[in-house]
Design a protein around this nucleic acid. Structure first.
Length: 463
RNA sequence: GGCUGAGUGGCAGAGUGGUUAUGCAGCGGCCUGCAAAGCCGUAAACAGCGGUUCGAUUCCGCUCUCAGCCUCCA
């Protein structure tokens, strides 16, 4: 079978993955700026790279997954002023909210979650190095800037040349900079702003330097994979490369991975456009696992169109998989089945989760058949299905529990009431009072409860 | 202006130089008191125009359309 291939944004093609250290992988992902609730776009990053980390573990790698938290920047400061609270109270609150969303989405914790505010020493050291090496300078306004012209390879990741770009396309050119594309490494504080001491006076780090400093501290000068949303490719990741490679003189990252956007009505979901849904909002209507399935139903580099219809399809799809797993006790399967092999082939092809899921559906189809014809083989096939689901972070609940769980935070009919109604209906059925039996079933159906008769027994699920 | 990526059946979404994706929805059956779930069968697609080829949805070129980036952004 072909080994794992990953699309490397740096070279715009799929390449076989070769770890720097045999059997280990260092993965750094740009995380959230914590001044608000996570939206579905953030959820996509969380889920996609959670699957990347899980699949590496599945392949037997020792994974060191680092995802930073940006807990100081202009937006945080502004939001804290609006809310009339200390910026660190604000960020702590939204860090907790983010962790809650991750739990809802069955996203495993990264191994390390460094904070910008706890990385000041590393940041300042790196800026000093950059100044010493003439890659950075102190502007007339006392801000420290990175000099993009000092780095020969500037533009390699985003595939653009300094001359080709339109300076001031959206933002006015800053006269303190020598080149309009120079970017801030250290920003001096205005009165009342949160600030840390530095050789250039009290201030705070620019956005890009924190990731260079934190990734280097956690994973070394040169590591395997760096990921994030497509929109970070330029300037954020371009600038990280410039900073890190200029400071250390070493290659920074081997493989760059960028996930596509979530869209609404064919338009990028973003805070600035205001067309975003928070994870919290969607959880009012859908299960966390349904959101997760939705994210994985298309390839991570493709756009993902958000709509209720899509979420409803994810619901139906998960229902099918969990239904297949009902009434089977999985048993160890020592053989690597054809399904597992095709699943791995799909995942090895740049984490093709959409194709991997299609293999799971074929497996579920066979499982449904085997349940009545060959229980022993069914038990093994169930294990196959669960084996594939694990690196995707799916199907980790008991099937019956999942199918009967409420489909959102909204108030739903109580389990005890359902049981009561079912018993009433069983009596009606025994009396051959079909009209009453159907009426009860219809009533429950209107409240999202589906009944399924199996001989003298009735099972139920919510949808 | 520069640079990316994409256009697949009713919807979503993989993939491939010649043979079933998969899920949902549809149609016909089996099962069921009737349903639901499940199973079996079935139909339907590759933006347009050229080119390469015995053969292209798949490779190449052009056109059209859409999306993204060009210092807020996942």
């Amino acid at each position: 079978m072909k080994p794992l291939h990953i699309f490397n944004s740096l070279h715009r093609k799929k390449q076989p993955f070769t770890p720097i250290v045999e059997g280990k992988v260092g993965l750094y992902v740009c995380g959230m700026t914590v001044y608000d609730f996570c939206h579905i776009g953030h959820a996509r990053v969380m889920v996609v790279f959670d699957v990347v980390a899980r699949y590496f573990k599945y392949l037997g790698y020792e994974v060191n997954y680092v995802r930073n938290i940006t807990d100081i920047d202009d937006k945080i400061i502004n939001r804290a002023i609006e809310a009339g609270e200390d910026f660190s109270q604000l960020t702590q609150r939204f860090i907790a909210e983010m962790h809650q969303d991750e739990t809802s989405l069955n996203v495993q914790k990264p191994d390390l979650e460094p904070l910008a505010t706890e990385s000041m020493n590393d940041i300042i050291l790196m800026i000093e190095t950059l100044i010493d090496k003439q890659h950075a300078y102190l502007g007339p306004n006392n801000d420290v800037y990175y000099a993009v012209e000092s780095f020969a390879n500037y533009g390699q990741l985003s595939g653009r040349k300094l001359d080709d770009m339109n300076a001031g396309e959206r933002v006015e050119v800053d006269a303190n900079k020598r080149n309009p594309f120079d970017f801030v490494l250290w920003k001096s504080a205005k009165a009342g702003e949160p600030a840390w001491p530095s050789p250039w006076g009290a201030g705070r780090p620019g956005w890009h330097i924190e990731c260079s400093a934190m990734s280097t501290r956690c994973l070394g000068n040169h590591f395997d994979i760096h990921g994030g949303g497509m929109d970070l490719q330029f300037p954020h990741h371009e600038n990280e490369i410039a900073q890190s490679e200029a400071a250390t003189g070493e290659c920074f990252v081997n493989t760059w991975m960028h996930n596509g956007f979530v869209r609404i009505d064919d338009e990028k979901m973003s805070k600035s456009l205001g067309n975003f849904f928070t994870v919290r909002e969607v959880l009012k209507q859908y299960r966390g696992e349904e959101i997760r399935f939705f994210v994985l139903s298309s390839h991570y580099r493709s756009p993902l169109n958000y709509s209720d219809e899509q979420l409803n399809e994810s619901r139906a799809a998960l229902e099918r998989l969990y239904t297949a797993l009902r009434n089977v006790t999985p048993a160890a399967n020592p053989d690597k089945s054809d399904y597992i092999q095709r699943f791995e082939a799909a995942m090895n092809d740049d984490f093709n989760t959409a194709k991997a899921l299609s293999v799971m559906f074929e497996c579920a189809n066979e499982l449904n058949k085997l349940k009545s014809t060959d229980p022993e083989k069914a038990a093994k096939t169930a294990t196959d299905l669960l084996t594939m689901a694990e690196p995707l972070g799916l199907l980790n609940q008991d099937p019956e529990t999942y199918l009967q769980s409420s489909t959102g935070d909204d108030v739903a009919i109580d389990n005890d009431v359902i049981t009561l109604k079912i018993n009433q209906r069983l009596q009606a059925k025994a009396d051959k009072n079909w009209a009453l039996a159907d009426q009860i079933r219809d009533e429950l159906s209107q409240q999202g409860v589906i009944l399924e008769d199996k001989g003298v027994q009735t099972t139920w699920r919510r949808n």
